[in-house]
Amino acid sequence: MRTQRKQRMIFIVVLLVGLSCATALALYAMRQNIMLFHTPSEVYTGKVPENRLFRIGGLVVVGSVVKADDGLTTDFGLTDLNQSITVRYTGLLPDLFREGQGIVAQGSLDGHGVFIAQEVLAKHDENYMPPEVAASLKQYRDTIPKGMSGYGPKAP
C-alpha cells in the first residue's frame, strides 16, 4: 500500500476515535437530560425538580386503579418495584393503559406526595405474541417458579 493511502487511512481512524471520545463524554455529561423520565424512587430521594414539570415512569400497580365519581379522574399507584407513588390524572387514558403495564406521565408533585399528571402515555415492551400464547404463558407462569418463562414480559 502506498504511504499516501496509509496516511489517509490513519487520519480517518484517528478522526473517528477522537470524535467518538468527544461524543461519549458529551453524552455522559448530559445523561440526566437525555433520560426521558424519573423513577418513583428518585421522588423519594429528592432527585426530581421542584416547581417544574417532569416525567415519571414505571409500572401501574396491580389493583390500584381507582376511578373518581366524575368518571374522568383516575388515581393509580406507579412503581419501579422499589418505591411507589400515587398518580392522579384527569382525562382520557391511552388504550394500552392497564394494571401491570408500563406508563410515562408528565406533571408535578402536589406537595402531599401525589403526582398530578397532565399527560399519561403508555409504554409497551418489545414482546409480541398471539393472545392464546399470552394466556397459556400466564397459566404456565402461575404453576412454575418465576424466572423460568419463555416469551413474554419478564415477571417482576
Partner: peptide, 19 residues
C-alpha cells in the same frame, strides 16, 4: 437511557421477544 420507545427486539436469543 430511559425512553418511551420499547427496547430492541431480542431476536438472536433462546427466548426471542417476538413469537
Amino acid at each position: 437511557w430511559s425512553s418511551l420507545h420499547q427496547p430492541n427486539m431480542q431476536l438472536v436469543s433462546k427466548t426471542p421477544s417476538v413469537h
